[in-house]
Design a protein around this nucleic acid. Sequence first.
DNA 1: CATCTGATG
DNA 2: CATCAGATG
Lengths: 288, 288
Amino acid sequence: MPPAAKKMKREEIPSLDSVSFECSQVNKEGKKHNLVLASWNINGIRAWAEKKAWKYILKESPDVICFQETKCSDKDVPPECNLPGYYSYYNCGTKPGYSGTGLLTKKKPKKVTMGIGKEQHDDEGRVITAEFDEFFFVGAYVPNSGRGLVRLKYRTQEFDKDFREYLMVLDKQKPVIYCGDLNVAHEEIDLKNPTSNRNKTAGFHDDEREQFTELLSSGFVDTFRKLYPAEQKFSYWSYMGNARGKNVGWRLDYFVVSERIFDKVNDSVIRAEVHGSDHCPVVLFLNL
Amino acid sequence: MPPAAKKMKREEIPSLDSVSFECSQVNKEGKKHNLVLASWNINGIRAWAEKKAWKYILKESPDVICFQETKCSDKDVPPECNLPGYYSYYNCGTKPGYSGTGLLTKKKPKKVTMGIGKEQHDDEGRVITAEFDEFFFVGAYVPNSGRGLVRLKYRTQEFDKDFREYLMVLDKQKPVIYCGDLNVAHEEIDLKNPTSNRNKTAGFHDDEREQFTELLSSGFVDTFRKLYPAEQKFSYWSYMGNARGKNVGWRLDYFVVSERIFDKVNDSVIRAEVHGSDHCPVVLFLNL
DNA sequence: CATCTGATG
DNA sequence: CATCAGATG
């Protein structure tokens, strides 16, 4: 008898061999970075692990990386996601297979907290805060406003506002490094098709953009845009219509830092070559 | 940039090149068959088409074949299922992606009817009847009694009884050839593990078996068993635990005919070598 | 284990 | 288009 039909087999994602993860940027004093922080919406940690997309982390070797959209309960996180040399933390939320964040860090944080301390925002596993000696690292998966913008009001008038308040309180204690899938393309340059999406598609509604502007008016800096004012680079491409192949994308993933530590930032990078999700990683290099 | 990760690609099912579809059996008068009828639970016509499992039909070239578990609305039947030289009919039921039957025939039937004319049984697309000059061809997907036998009573006390009545009425007009996934292993020989499954697993409950016995007492013949009283051969293997590789199966697919045409039956065959579903096709060769 | 749907993005 | 859940078998 011939062998049974085998299970569908996923094709491998492109190898990282040809991708360089060097960062030659130096700060004003000519110093190289001594800290690497990363963020990646991995769109399902189980599928992501199946693709062995964690190989990226071994290459980049960030000191801290946070994930968005793990879509997985703690107990179902694949064991291979416990990468050697990292402590790991997950904030999974209650709705199975939905949202969820994670954080891996080489150095054990002084404290790790889940959510922002407001019940109405904290059941979807969207925020992890790791406190280190010199800064707060906040990884977030900001709510998508949804098809038909059904959740726009909640996201902009409730989540964004309470979240900004949360960051400002932290910022009073020590500098904040805030990153994640912020689910907004701030300016026209931040997406391929601003005119067709403006006020229609989640992520480019004026209300979402204004909330982000408001954040930047509250003592925070969009590191990539500050360093590269005119560069169009995306961190997300819809899986539909081969958008990534055509580079029809959005910049939804950010590193936002307290103004007073921006001078510690050596570089802010979007790793568009890295596959394994519909988002790519973003990375911040610092000298602290 | 490296190419995007491609879509999962299903491995091909085994080729049919090494499988013989000859039937050398002759009837009492030494005559070869002049009619080939087939039945196959294809477990989703879209997945089945994706696997190109319809190649079997080109090889076997039955005059009529009926399908069970098409799991597809009429409009979503893949176009490649319109095989050259066949008329096709589908009875899809109302619940999307659930149940559903189909029938392909080289000769146009005098009449095709869906269901058995009783509303309470006819919304799940389980029965197609094609009337030909010399016989009724009835293809059926008998309701599964379900995990925990939750539907055992409906299936045995309502469906089986009404369906038997339906066949008996047809049988008064002209001979009936009844086939399909009857969702019962009649005797212990008809499944690998009778003791562990008896009265526990759907398909080998005494009530289901008795209903089938009752059918055979009403003027019908289980053609395979009549021809091969001691042969253990299966037409279904669970996808779980590599059951097919270990040949841990069930005979759930039958050709049952009116007693008075059994002498026209040259052979009744179970095509266990044919892949593409968790069931394999069953075939009846006749000389009419 | 494999097929669907439906939610979500 | 892709991931996940849940129903069904």
